[in-house]
Design a protein around this nucleic acid. Structure first.
Length: 568
RNA sequence: CGGGGCGUAGCUCAGCCUGGUAGAGCGCACGGUUCGGGACCGUGAGGCCGGAGGUUCAAGUCCUCUCGCCCCGACCA
């Protein structure tokens, strides 16, 4: 491609709203253009990169036995009513009507459509398993789109759906997808990690996320260097912290703790460690109020708490509700004397505590010398501890560390949630109808490209991993006024094209400085500079964007050397 | 949805407080000088000051409404 005829316009300045480096660089390198909040055009240079990734994804999906199809963007509401998600999905589902005022929505994900397809075709266990995938536009009306392609409303995703006759089949399909994902992200040369994840609204029994590690990531990841355990912090477990020394039961007493609203203040006033205070957090849930008890030096993980309570979500009670339930100001709630309507649940960290302090459900008062069993009867213990760095790995006990990641893939074992609701069944060996067992496997195409830039850039611009680079080689003649330079550059360009190399020739009539800066910005991995001086010696200058080290080679052998450098 | 901010040239922004002829830099066009890391000089084109209403002799500027965008928070396959 000749730059002069291509559609690639770089900019020096960026809109002030571009916050993170991948967003800035994608705009400056002419890859994307914002059309509305969270909605982008993919300009030719950016689209090439998405196409490179898509090709890798297709290759690995096909190799893993998935079959490509293409489903609609606009979905009939009837399907979504069948799966009950017309009501459940909430405002992220963009609903529209046609001229006859029939309800439709823009597909945020395709379980409904794919299940509808499969239930019409597949009748027998003999026809299973099946795995269908597409690379398609999704629309989710996110509350707050941000960071360019990281969190858009309209975005491109690869989504695959597996259908199996039994759990073993699902397990195999899931493993095959997980391995395909590993190969895809390895092929993209990304530093990533596969972690356990919460299943969230999608439901199902098991789920993993693929995280590209980057400080700008929106997700927090817990990992163990020793045994390889990894999990989204929402899901992460740890071994319960060791309880403090067991003491002889003391008498329970009410003590005045004026204006002590936090555990730290209470602990200091009482002259005890925070681990001897029990924090009582009141939550509102769709099933009624709940009181969550946790050791004073630790924090609650709301996702784990919701799972432990078996409710879709929990919301920390506001001041009014706290007063109503505990009869006291915020900061003085305790497990003793709460109304019966409040469900009591304790984190494992509370087990084994002796002579602890807790709120007295009375403003400016706490109880001390409280003991389980004698003073308060707790029957429900669960793990809803928020893991922090340094906690013990649940598998091997080593120290866990915390890092940030960009969620580029998410795979789920769905089970029969959709097949049951939508009647997607098959006849088993006994001729009995059974719901198919499903899995779904998402991979953000645009987000992965953005993540690659987050991980591969410097102050001057993008440093493309070769497999995702829009072009592999940039031919950069320093001037258009020296016929020898032009001829040599044209020659290299034509030869590389003939060899099937993705090559861009910067034939613009620009000064060298402009060309060099643009070359760094757009980040093409292999560069060959053709200048009058070196050409007088019959040489051209090769370099890699990644390290910038220059190598002078004779013009004659340059093409072979370039092909070598551009080999993925 | 709560809190905060911003809409002026293609882009980045000043001008608004204190109403009185629409500005700068970059980019673009033309001419000249330059030419291995975003050159310089000159000339020029380019604006419904997001939209609607109001106050006023007069509104980019003040008031009301509205639309859009961004940030923080809650939320999230």
């Amino acid at each position: 491609m000749r730059w002069s005829r291509y559609y690639l316009f770089t900019t020096r300045e960026v809109p002030a709203d571009a916050e993170i480096v991948s967003h800035r660089l994608m705009i400056r390198a002419g890859m994307i253009r914002k059309e509305a909040a969270g909605i982008y055009s993919y300009l030719p240079f950016g689209w090439r990169s998405l196409q490179k990734l898509s090709a890798i994804v297709r290759r690995e999906m096909d190799a893993a036995g998935a079959v490509e199809l293409f489903m609609p963007v606009v979905h009939d509401a009837e399907l979504w009513k069948e799966s009950k998600r017309w009501q459940e999905y909430g405002k992220e589902l963009l609903r529209i009507q046609d001229r006859h005022e029939r309800d439709f929505c823009l597909g945020p994900t395709h379980e409904e459509v794919v299940t509808d397809i499969v239930r019409r075709d597949v009748r027998s266990y003999r026809q299973l398993p099946k795995n269908l995938y597409q690379i398609q536009v999704k629309f989710r009306d996110e509350i707050r789109p941000r960071f360019g392609l990281m969190r858009g409303r309209e975005f491109i995703m690869k989504d695959a759906y597996s259908f199996d006759a039994d759990q073993a089949g699902l397990d195999a399909a899931y493993d095959a997808m997980a391995q395909a994902y590993e190969r895809i992200f390895e092929a993209c040369q990304l530093d990533f990690s596969r972690v356990e994840a919460d299943t969230g609204a999608i439901g199902g029994s098991s789920s993993h996320e693929f995280m590209v590690l980057a400080d700008t990531g929106e997700s927090e990841v817990v990992s163990c260097r020793e045994c390889g355990y990894g999990a989204n912090v929402e899901r992460a477990e740890t071994q319960p912290p060791a309880p403090p020394e067991v003491q002889k039961p003391a008498e329970m007493q009410e003590v005045a703790t004026p204006a002590c609203h936090t555990v730290a203040e209470v602990a200091e006033l009482l002259g005890i460690g925070r681990e001897r205070v029990v924090k009582t957090l009141l939550y509102d849930t769709p099933e009624g109020p709940a009181a969550a008890l946790i050791r004073g030096d630790r924090e609650v993980n709301p996702t784990k708490l919701a799972n432990a309570l078996d409710v879709p979500e929990v919301t920390l009670a506001d001041e009014t509700l706290v007063r109503k339930l505990s009869g006291a100001a915020v900061g003085f709630a305790g497990p003793i004397g709460l109304p019966d309507s409040v469900r009591l649940i304790a984190d494992e960290s509370v087990r084994g505590l002796t002579n602890f302090a807790c709120g007295a459900n009375k403003t400016d008062a706490h109880l001390t010398g409280v003991n389980l069993g004698r003073d308060v009867d707790l029957s429900e213990f669960h793990d809803f501890l928020l893991v922090t760095a340094g906690d013990a790995c649940p598998r091997c006990g080593s120290e866990l560390s915390l890092s940030r990641g960009i969620e580029v893939g998410h795979i789920f074992k769905l089970g029969t949630k959709y097949s049951e609701r939508m009647g997607c069944t098959f006849a088993d060996e006994q001729g009995q109808d059974q719901p198919m067992i499903m899995g779904c496997y998402g991979l953000g195409i645009g987000r992965t490209v953005a993540a690659a830039i987050e991980q591969n850039h410097d102050d001057n611009g993008i440093i493309w991993p070769l497999p995702l680079a829009p072009f592999s080689v940039l031919v950069l003649p320093l001037t258009n006024r020296d016929d020898a330079v032009v001829a040599a550059a044209e020659g290299l360009y034509e030869d590389l094209l003939a060899k099937g190399v993705d090559v861009l020739l910067d034939d613009r009539d620009e000064r060298p400085g402009v060309k060099f800066n643009d070359a760094d910005l757009v980040g093409i991995p292999v560069r060959v500079v053709v200048g009058s001086k070196s050409l007088a010696d019959g040489k051209v200058e090769l370099s890699l964007r990644r390290d910038g080290e220059k190598e002078l080679v004779p013009v004659e052998g340059a093409v072979e050397r370039l092909i070598e450098l551009a080999a993925v």
